[in-house]
Write a protein that binds this DNA or RNA. Structure first.
Lengths: 216, 216
DNA sequence: ACACTCGCCTACCGATCGGTAGGGAGACCC
DNA sequence: GGGTCTCCCTACCGATCGGTAGGCGAGTGT
């Protein structure tokens, strides 16, 4: 891996763990094994490095999301979307921590980023929620935008602090247990009980179908 | 207000907004209107100030919670507990931001704090959840500890970043809307639909009762 | 009147911060 | 082989960091 990528990687880990203000350029360069001046050759300033780290993270996400939205089968869209979102942050909890820190540290900048990067998607999905509500599959009293926001939040926050808050869950699979409950909450509070049953039935039918096709 | 309290207050606001590492002693003392050396007269070090800020916050909470647990009527315990928790953090969102930052910045220290301050309460409430599950009022597939953790998380995270994430909710009452949805999700994903109806019926009866008593 | 404490101050400390200047080894082009 | 570009280095900058030393004025107790 080239030095620039190593710097980006180390900066991501350190910013996530100690925050932007709490991480010095010396610390990052030391983690990579080069001198501070070399770091500043690749990134002209600490702020530029910070932007690069965030861009790197968000571009990953923007690359995953559209593929996900169109790939997910129409009916189980929410299920797949939720699960893949969880997987994305679970694959590297530092992603969740970075976003959380950014929201706390620079609310104004984060707001601007969200406005252009997230809001359009959010509106598309919210529209699907409204359709599901009209069909009686989703709870009518849910606030689509508020719900989506809260779920994103539940996932990001839950994963970012799973280690810390996991103190009340003594067993070792605490993260799995927490994630499982998060997914359960997200689904239960969106689907009506009928919708949930219908969704399960559809998935069973599809799995059956897949098996048949695989057997051929 | 005496200077010490002013310092504590300013430090709380600044730590919440910019984090511990991102806030200098000069900034805090400037906000109060005294010199840095005067600040260090009241608090021997930055770290001591930080501890004082956190102790101040947690003691508030520990003062509120027990009163809350015993005051809430047996059947609507969850409702009252949830709502008062929301109110506690909504009254000063900096509380939520501070806790969130602490969990990110010093996971080890936070874990220790949680272990002694939160875990006992959590276990008591989880026991009540299990009872409710046995009665069929609460969803049997919920993981009591995981659920409680996630709700705390949903509330704290939601309130801490309501301003930032509220970008997708254009209207002015965004915070109210978000909070309302958070409460809805928390209840819907815990109560069975029967339990929810029963709870509503109980509350209606009680309100009726209150009116009668007030009319006498 | 005196000593003493409290609360805040000015002045300063060494360490570390983000960032700059400039040099040198190696690869590549002509 | 000379020129140049890439990449990393040593050495240094002024600013700011958390923290210390010590003085000064306003009470307070005796």
């Amino acid at each position: 891996m080239d030095v620039r990528a190593q710097i980006l990687d180390a900066a991501t880990r350190l910013f996530a763990a100690q925050g932007y203000g709490g991480t010095s350029l010396s610390a990052i360069s030391a983690a990579v094994g080069v001198r501070k001046a070399s770091l500043l050759y690749h990134f002209p300033s600490k702020d530029a490095l910070h932007r690069a780290v965030l861009d790197n993270l968000l571009s990953h996400w923007n690359e995953v999301l559209p593929r996900l939205l169109e790939a997910a089968a129409g009916d189980d869209r929410f299920d797949a979307l939720l699960h893949e979102t969880v997987r994305f942050f679970l694959a590297d909890p530092d992603r969740a921590r970075l976003l959380l820190r950014e929201a706390l540290d620079r609310p104004e900048a984060m707001r601007a980023r969200l406005r252009v990067a997230v809001k359009p998607w959010m509106e598309v999905i919210a529209e699907y929620v409204r359709k599901g509500q009209a069909q009686g599959e989703l709870r009518a009293d849910a606030d689509p935008e508020g719900y989506l926001l809260s779920v994103v939040h539940l996932v990001i926050g839950g994963i970012a602090t799973a280690d810390t808050l996991g103190v009340v869950l003594d067993d070792e699979g605490r993260t799995e247990r927490l994630v499982h409950e998060i997914e359960r909450m997200a689904k239960t509070s969106l689907f009506t009980d009928e919708g949930l049953a219908a969704s399960r039935a559809r998935r069973a039918a599809r799995d059956d179908d897949d098996e048949h096709r695989a057997a051929e």
